[in-house]
C-alpha cells in the first residue's frame, strides 16, 4: 500500500484565511448592493470557502451548486455532473471556486453559463495562481494569489486528503523547491 501523502509548509494560517474571507465578503457585498446575485458554487473544493464567504455577505443572494466531471482518460469532453436548478437568465451570477490555476475549468464554466443569458458573470476564487494560467480568465475576487506550488487545505485536497484543514499548506515537496519559493515570499516553515 502506498504511503499517505505528507503535508509541507504552512502557507496561510486559519486566522489569515478568515481575515481575507471577511474582506472579500465585504467587497462583494459593496459591489452587489441592490442586487441579489446567484452564487454558483463549484463542488467539491469550494464548499468550505463558500460557507464562510456567505456568512460575511450583507446582501441577499441565492446559492446553487454545480459539479463537473474530472478529467479522466476515455472521457472525451467535460460533462456537467450536477447542474444548477435556478434559471440564470437575467441574473447576476457569481461563480465560487476554490482555486483558479490553469483557468481551463473556469473558462469552460463561464462559456457554458454565458449561454444561459445571465445579466453578468463574475468569478470569485479562494486562491488564484496566475503563474500556471493557460486559459484567459478574469478573476474578479480572490483571497490570495499563490506562487507555482501545490497547495492543500480549506477545501483543497490531494487524493481525498487534507481537505478539512482550516489553513493552507503545501503538499510535501522532497526537492525543497516549494519551501524555497515560500521562504522568498516570507512564508512557510511553521506548521
Amino acid at each position: 500500500m502506498n504511503e499517505p501523502p505528507r503535508l509541507g509548509d504552512l502557507v496561510f494560517t486559519p486566522e489569515e484565511v478568515q481575515k481575507r474571507v471577511k474582506e472579500v465578503g465585504r467587497c462583494i457585498s459593496g459591489d452587489y448592493v441592490g442586487k441579489k446575485p446567484v452564487l454558483v458554487v463549484i463542488l467539491r473544493g469550494a464548499v468550505y470557502f463558500a460557507v464562510d464567504l456567505t456568512r460575511e455577505l450583507s446582501i441577499p443572494f441565492d446559492i446553487d451548486f454545480m459539479s463537473l466531471s474530472p478529467f479522466r482518460p476515455g472521457l472525451q469532453r467535460v460533462e456537467i455532473e450536477m447542474d444548477v436548478d435556478i434559471p440564470l437568465a437575467g441574473k447576476d451570477v457569481l461563480i465560487i471556486e476554490d482555486i483558479i490555476d490553469t483557468g481551463l475549468t473556469v473558462n469552460f464554466l463561464v462559456r457554458t453559463l454565458e449561454k444561459r443569458f445571465p445579466r453578468g458573470i463574475r468569478v470569485c476564487s479562494f486562491l488564484s495562481c496566475p503563474a500556471r494560467r493557460i486559459a484567459e480568465v478574469h478573476v474578479h475576487y480572490f483571497c490570495f494569489e499563490i506562487p507555482d506550488v501545490y497547495v492543500v487545505g480549506y477545501g483543497l485536497d490531494f487524493q481525498g486528503y487534507f481537505r478539512n484543514l482550516t489553513g493552507v499548506y503545501t503538499l510535501y515537496d522532497p526537492t525543497g523547491r516549494s519551501t524555497q519559493i515560500l521562504k522568498a515570499m516570507g512564508k512557510g516553515g511553521k506548521r
Binding site: 474530472p70 478529467f71 490555476d101 490553469t102 500556471r132 507555482d148 485536497d157 490531494f158 487524493q159 481525498g160
Partner: peptide, 15 residues
C-alpha cells in the same frame, strides 16, 4: 516539466 506534472496531478488528483 513541473507545471505539466502539476496539471496531470491536478486533473487526476483533485476531486
Amino acid at each position: 516539466a513541473r507545471d505539466y506534472e502539476h496539471i496531470v496531478r491536478k486533473f487526476g488528483g483533485r476531486k
